[in-house]
Write a protein that binds this DNA or RNA. Structure first.
Lengths: 142, 142
DNA sequence: CTTTGTGCAAATTCTTTGCACCAAA
DNA sequence: TTTGGTGCAAAGAATTTGCACAAAG
């Protein structure tokens, strides 16, 4: 029987990240809390269990995760940066009222059904692509 | 013959915004610079022509535009907030190399062609919806 | 040892706020 | 007048940096 933390450790190593205690804790938190937490939330929730934890480490660690493709940074909310440990293809819905971020299937029909059934009232759609433009690809082989 | 500024003025009024000199200037800037400028850029570019302009006014004005649906706030770049005066349905591409934001047609085939022709190397896709969730819709009729 | 990670405090940056002055109706 | 817009300076919040100490190999 392999523990959850051991799986997280393996996951980090697979992404080229040395699995320190803090890193495992933060990734474990991300994976067990698919709520798109912010740095603040992660820090506040882990702090009691890891009293020495600093916010700097949370910042450092999340940045590392994103750089290694082990987590996603969501900029859907202009006020707060959120993080997602779920790398599977899915869209996000940001409630302008309560600030909650919900997962939505990428599949169009599911999305429409969610909208039609009044689960969400969608007022804005943002489709963002990120990557490298031709100029930048030519400069260095990214 | 109607001047460009007069058209901008009409546009603001249509969106329920009182057309002050600063507001007209900033909206005119947005419409003549489809480059998704930041507060900083707008301020720096307009400052020489409007020496009394303050950054606070740029912030206030853009916030007003977004609230009245006269402009879009882009959070594609986690470092800087960008603004778009083009309200037509289109996707955005953010170059992780140079930070440039490009417009992309929403139409899937065009997008794929752009990608295939090596105009862009897309590494991330973010589909963001914003609006109100059921709970928030029930609270107040937004 | 030597390298890497952690965490405190300070610095920096971005954005908002409070308030006084100015302009338009 | 009265209301709303502007802009300065200060405050506030989010994030980064510099550096010293701790941990791991």
């Amino acid at each position: 029987m392999v523990s959850r933390k051991e799986n997280v450790e393996k996951y980090l190593v697979e992404h080229g990240i040395k699995p320190s205690f803090q890193r495992i804790s933060i990734m474990d938190y991300l994976r067990t809390h698919p709520t798109h937490p912010s740095v603040e939330t992660i820090y506040n929730d882990l702090s009691p269990r890891i009293p020495t934890l600093s916010k700097t480490t949370v910042y450092n660690t999340l940045k590392l995760f994103v750089e290694h493709g082990a987590a996603l940074m969501l900029t859907i909310d202009e006020k707060t940066t959120h993080f997602d440990g779920d790398l599977s293809s899915h869209a996000h819905f940001f409630c302008l009222g309560c600030g909650q971020i919900y997962d939505i299937e990428m599949d169009a029909s599911v999305r429409e059904r969610a909208s039609e059934s009044d689960l969400f009232t969608i007022t804005e759609t943002h489709l963002y692509y990120k990557g490298y433009c031709r100029k930048c690809c030519e400069k260095s082989d990214k």
